[in-house]
Simulated scan of single mutants.
Amino acid sequence: MHIKPFNNKNKAIVDVNDKFVPLTYFNIVKLNAGEQFHYKVSGYETCIVPATGTIDVEVIGQTFEAVGNRKVDVWGGEPEAVYVPVGIEAKFTCVTDNTEVFIAGAKYDKVLKPFVVRVAELDLVQYGSDETKTHRKIKHILGQKQANQVGRLLVSELFTVGQGGWSGFPSHKHDTNRLPEETRHDETYNFRFKPNYGSGLQMLQREENKSGDAYHIVNGSTVCIDKGYHPCCVLPGYEMYYFTILGGLSQRSLKQYFQPTHAAQLKTIPGILDMVEKFK
């Protein structure tokens, strides 16, 4: 499902128990200097990630100061974040002129401890090649390094390297719990483009060897992946970013099932198997 950009007025874009992706939660909050935002999401663990600007975050009496360092856009530095346990109230305050904050969430039933993710705790991966039109880098915010601190939530930022190209290829899915071949993980994206008038295409093929859906994605588009194979691409001459939220049904580690039609392409894309191992 494609949700076109709109003024969400700091209210959830993908709310709890969403009919398409009930395992994930997503909100965008925009504040000016000195403004605060309070929230609590029952039944979901969440992660606060400033897209731009800097915030102070308070959770259960703990204060995490000066989270976030990007000024203009998501290409302007490395992400930072704060993990918020299930059902716990969090408050953050804008300490720069303005801020745009992503709140990612996944359904979970245990209360863990809050923590901050600084630049040094990120897990950075780059794979693909210009020749195969699959060159991209991934910044894992809640990834393998945080495996023992989080329940079901995976959060990352994905960037195309250079202009144009494909992401999420070879086509894969993760909509059915059938270990060891595949796990059920709902997924939600928010896209950005550089320059911001760029655009791309999100494919969603729900059945093998049958035509599927295609969405024209623009700066600020949100896409919910509930079922099917889902590669995406960006127009030549533009760079693409997407904030990625994965919520697992029975486990946190993601097991992707690659589409048999295109599985041979796994051998042509440098580093892709190492990339797959990072979604744990």
Rank of each mutant, 00 (worst) to 15 (best):
C47D: 10
V155G: 00
G128S: 05
V41R: 02
L273H: 06
G165D: 05
V72Y: 10
P85H: 10
D56M: 09
Q144M: 11
F115N: 05
E157D: 11
H135Q: 07
H172I: 05
D123I: 06
I88G: 01
T24N: 13
Y108P: 01
S253H: 08
P79K: 09
G168L: 02
N17F: 09
P270R: 10
D123M: 09
P170K: 03
G162F: 07
D15Q: 13
R118Q: 09
F258R: 03
K267N: 15
K11P: 01
G151M: 06
V74K: 00
F6S: 10
M240K: 06
H216R: 13
H38F: 15
T160E: 03
K71H: 11
E121D: 15
I13V: 15
H2L: 15
V161D: 05
K71C: 07
T46L: 09
H216K: 13
K227V: 04
R152S: 12
T63M: 13
L204W: 01
V84E: 05
F102D: 02
E121V: 05
S211Q: 12
F191P: 00
N98Q: 13
T52N: 07
F258E: 08
D175S: 14
K255P: 00
D123K: 12
S199F: 13
A120W: 04
R70D: 07
R192S: 08
G237E: 10
G53L: 05
I245C: 11
L266W: 03
I245W: 00
M240D: 04
L273P: 00
I141M: 06
K113M: 05
A263H: 08
T99H: 03
F64S: 05
T63E: 14
D109Q: 11
A33P: 00
Y108V: 06
V72Q: 13
F193P: 03
D213E: 15
L204N: 10
L122R: 10
Y229P: 01
L158T: 14
V57I: 14
G34Y: 08
P79E: 07
E121P: 09
I55A: 09
A90V: 07
H216F: 14
V67H: 04
V155K: 01
Y25H: 05
D130L: 13
P50T: 08
N190E: 10
F20Y: 13
H230C: 04
V16A: 12
Q126V: 10
